[in-house]
Design a protein around this nucleic acid. Structure first.
Lengths: 341, 341
DNA sequence: TTGAAAGCGCTAACAG
DNA sequence: CTGTTAGCGCTTTCAA
């Protein structure tokens, strides 16, 4: 491990000149710079990030917090963010906070402290307390999924997306519509699930449909949870004719449940998802598409902007959504029969 | 940002004592430790990782290299690894090298240098040159997926897995068997795809079946690639009756192609995948299951062992595999007709 | 354009 | 059990 001193000695200059030369700072003659670069390469010199970090106070590292890595959705966002960070010369520190324990631990110990120059929170609904902990870091902060004081933010219009989905079902003739929610019974200050639930109920009301409490079932975030939720709906005395789900993965679980019960989609049940998961096309799921990679990339870019400008000004960027109609939605059986009469 | 000196002053001790106390080192009275801990908490003191890293030479950080984050398979492995690293007090630095450009860039610049205490390579087939670059780091190294000199390694028996899958097809009565490979035309020293291809051909030979070159189609790693591959197979003059695919995601693409062509599975075509993707159960895919999270976790554990023991001894751990038979495989139509006669 | 010197905040070896 | 001292390897004034 050759140090900067070694490079300096061989180049016949001082360490400061090497430092300047290697980082492209001005104040070094082109000739000297070239010589230094050559020798550094020859020696396979690589800077000590710890030393550099200690001296400058910057780590050239961004902390990314995400509930899970193994969901397609999060993987995509992370990928988008990483690309931007890498291009700007930053490395990415990954923290997953999927289960309650690791989440609490993260916000208690705040392992990003002193490790990163900025923090990117991906699709996680922060409690006010958690957001506060992060603000206390006094670093540029960004958020994908919703807005929060002190964070730059990139997000879609959850209300509008929900409306698109539900109105689509209503337009097809459905009136008995359930929702598989993305919400644990005890939310941690989650906001998107709440917005979508409210928008769901609002859209029904706007169409003079009375929301039915037993048709609002919890779903968490897995295929299995979606399956159980649909099982539950099918077990009610009068099952709905259509279901709006919080996420495509829940919808896929719902599809699985339908298949297991020998019911067909959309004849026996219309299903709409949210996200436009890469598999959704395959299972012919009607869904609300949102740009996923782009949200990660954009949020990372906002962070980079703050970092280079040195400003602490946050910004908010809305992202487009779109209803993608596929085979999982159709008119309810009753209306089909009626029209057949 | 209170420093260690501030804490020391308030506690009426020296910085070294604070350092010892906070890191749980011996040689501090319980009373003093408690007092220091209290004050540190009160001041919201957090250690400067750069300074600590510079002083100790350790970063408490592990570099994880992975082709993509957005594949279920990789997400799972990362998740498994992260859990183990976090528990051991290490943070995780993530590097994705999915496309050629970022891969070359990574191995050229080696951004892990001076940033991490160990490197974990997940399911990436390294070229000898790339492995060399990593070995030059002189850090503990681990690999998931295959073996390499100087790396601890966790992997399944690809040959055996392939044999399980292909023999299953043969036992069902298939003799016209194709393979959708996980191999780009110009491999980068990839080894698992080669092993599986060879094992595929060997298994056929062992059963006196002549492998047919036009039935060996390339597949890369996406659902789309699997779909195109199956399109290609269906377009041959005499399509096979069964297909073994390199990965479940390719198999899902193959299923999509079948559906698009109005063919049914397994009547018109039996399909076997590899991995046991979480969606595979849903699409009723017969597959070779391998532990995924566990491989990431185990590899991380091997690294932790090396780090704590300080030894540079590498170890190799085989992981179990299992054929999971679901609805995507059955006897070939001809044999079904014969038995019906 | 370059060099000398003074840290950045922590740890570790050695004394006490 | 605790303090003193001397760096870890780089950056950054300030002076030349």
């Amino acid at each position: 491990m050759a140090g900067i001193e070694e490079v300096a000695r061989r180049a016949g200059v001082s360490p400061s000149t090497v430092s300047r030369a290697l980082r492209g700072r001005s104040g070094v003659s082109e000739r000297t710079r070239r010589r230094i670069t050559g020798i550094a390469e020859e020696l396979d010199y690589s800077i000590s990030r710890s030393a550099s970090g200690l001296a400058t106070g910057r780590t050239m590292c961004v902390g990314v917090i995400v509930p899970f890595v193994w969901r397609w959705f999060f993987g995509q966002i992370i990928g988008g963010a990483e690309q931007v960070l890498r291009a700007a010369g930053y490395d990415m520190m990954l923290y997953t906070t999927g289960d309650l324990e690791s989440r609490e631990r993260f916000f208690r110990e705040l392992p990003v402290r002193g490790r990163v120059d900025a923090v990117l929170v991906l699709s996680m609904d922060l409690t006010e307390q958690e957001a506060d902990r992060l603000r206390g870091l006094d670093l540029p902060l960004a958020l994908v999924g919703h807005e929060a004081e002190g964070f730059s933010s990139v997000h879609i219009d959850d209300r509008q997306g929900t409306r698109l989905a539900v109105q689509h079902l209503i337009n097809l003739g459905h009136r008995d519509i359930a929702m598989i929610q993305g919400l644990e019974p005890k939310p941690l200050g989650a906001i998107a699930p709440i917005i979508r639930r409210e928008a769901f109920q609002q859209t029904l009301s706007d169409n003079d449909i009375e929301p039915r409490p037993e048709w609002m079932v919890p779903g968490a975030f897995s295929i299995g949870a979606g399956e159980r939720a649909m099982d539950q709906l099918l077990a009610t005395s009068t099952p709905p004719t259509a279901v709006f789900t919080y996420a495509d993965e829940l919808a896929m679980g719902a599809l699985r449940s339908m298949r297991r019960h020998g019911r067909s989609v959309p004849q026996d049940m219309s299903i709409v998802g949210f996200d436009d998961h890469e598999m959704s096309e395959y299972v012919e799921l009607t869904t609300v598409a949102q740009p996923v990679r782009a949200q990660g990339a954009t949020a990372a870019q906002l962070l980079m902007n703050q970092l280079t400008s040195g400003s602490r000004e946050t910004s908010v960027l809305p992202m487009p959504i779109e209803l993608v109609v596929r085979g999982s939605t159709g008119p309810p059986r009753s209306s089909a029969e009626l029209s057949g009469d």
